[in-house]
Every structure is written in C-alpha cells, then in structure tokens.
C-alpha cells in the first residue's frame, strides 16, 4: 500500500455523465499544492473496489445508476470503506444510490444503505443553478452548483442536510444533499468542487487528519463563485 493519498473514482464507465472527472482532478490538484502526494485510481464496474482514502461517485442515467448500485452492493468495498471512516463524496445519481432506495426506469431499486435517506421521482425535472447555506457544523461558505435531476430525496433521522436551499430544488426545495460522518452527498452535479474549493479542502482534511491546510491562491475559484452566486441574486 502506497503512503500517498489514495483517491478512488468509482465506476467512471457507468457514472460519469458530465465533467465528473473534475472532482478527482480538483482534489488531486489541491493536495499537490499542499505537498501531499496523491494516487488517483479509476475503477471500472467489473473491477473490485480497492483500498482508498477518498471515494468519488458521479452522476449517471437510470440504467447505469441501477447497475452501479447492484455491483457496489455485491462488491461491499464501499461498505467496508465507510466502516473504517474513509471519505465518500457522491453527486446526483451517485448520491441517490448511497441511500436506502431510489427510482430508476420507473422501478424502485435497493440502495446501499450508507446514508439514511430514500429518493423518488419529483413532479418536475430540476435543472439549473443550485445554491444553499451549508450546515454550520461543517464550517463552509455557501454551496453553489448546477443541478440536473428528476429525483426528490427524503432524509431520515441519521443524516443531516448538507445545506438549506436558497436557489434551485436540491432534495425537495427546502434542503439539499446530506452528510453523516465522513460521507457527503449532493445534487450539485459534475465537477461540484470547482465552485466549492472549501468543500474540497474539507474532504482533504478529513482524509489526511490535518486540522488545517495552507491557503492556496483561490482567485479564480472566488471569482467563479461570485459570478454564479450573483447570477441567482445571492451576493
């Protein structure tokens, strides 16, 4: 086993609809800026999930989402990872399949049960800018992202909402995403961390055990955040 930080991108062959690679690239980039050595591993759905410090799960269409959930349930590697408090960051379809159940192609599918939540179909498709105030316990600035999903997610008592919605739909128009321990899910799809570098750093701090990380030059991230939050009237 390498001493470098292991970032595992789960099933890019199934769950990589649009820019999902970005979260892996951003985490690796920000780790290197702090002198933290990194290995990135792209694991296909016909391979066993390896040991990792951070697991990333992306978005996908219904068919691949259901298939990914089946394979992860059979593999059990993600369950073992959560048991040893590895970090999991999942977006959109990847977020839904961490819950107890979700809907794909009109049928209810078993989720992995790693987050206490379930998802069903909403009355409308949620497409557009998403923003919200992140749970103060996480100490992060406002969440900004782009959502594109037809699901609605209902949180159980064992998870906390990642954010309170200020623009867009998220879980149900009131809350967005969920977190528990070192597992975070969000409807902010694709390269969610490009607009939320502080969230990327939180994942890195959890994975490395560092209390704080040196502040990099975030000029462009900051300008991007300002522009996107401005577009929904939140700055």
């Amino acid at each position: 086993m390498s001493s470098a930080l292991q970032i595992v991108w789960v099933y890019p062959d199934l769950l990589s609809t649009y820019g999902d690679r970005g979260n892996m690239l951003i985490l690796a980039h920000r780790a290197k800026l702090r002198g933290i050595p990194v290995d990135t591993l792209e694991v296909r759905s016909d391979q066993a999930l390896p040991y990792g410090d951070i697991y990333l799960i992306g978005g996908g269409e219904d068919g691949p989402q259901a298939l990914a959930a089946q394979r992860l349930a059979a593999d059990r590697g993600l369950h073992r990872a959560v048991d040893r408090r590895a970090v999991v960051f999942a977006v959109c379809a990847g977020y839904q399949l961490l819950g107890n159940s979700f809907f794909a192609k009109g049928a209810k599918c078993d989720g992995l049960g790693l987050l206490d939540l379930h998802s069903d179909r909403g009355p409308t498709r949620a497409v557009g800018e998403l923003a919200g105030d992140i749970d103060p316990a996480l100490g992060l600035p406002m969440l900004t992202g782009f959502e594109n999903h037809g699901g609605r997610t209902h949180l159980g008592p064992e998870v906390k909402p990642l954010a309170k919605v200020r623009a867009g739909i998220g879980n149900d128009g009131a809350t967005e995403g969920a977190w528990s321990g070192t597992v975070i899910g969000t409807y902010s799809h694709g390269p969610a961390l490009s607009r939320n570098p502080a969230l990327a750093d939180l994942l890195l701090r959890w994975a490395t055990g560092e209390e704080s990380l040196a502040a990099p030059d975030d000029t462009w991230h900051t300008r991007l955040r300002g522009e996107r939050l401005g577009a929904v009237g939140l700055v």
């Binding site: 649009y18 820019g19 690679r21 970005g22």
Partner: peptide, 9 residues
C-alpha cells in the same frame, strides 16, 4: 446549453 460541467471532460 446552460451547464459548463463538460469543461472537465
């Protein structure tokens, strides 16, 4: 299209 996520592809 309103989504720029593809830039990371």
């Amino acid at each position: 299209g309103f989504d720029t996520s593809w830039l990371f592809d």
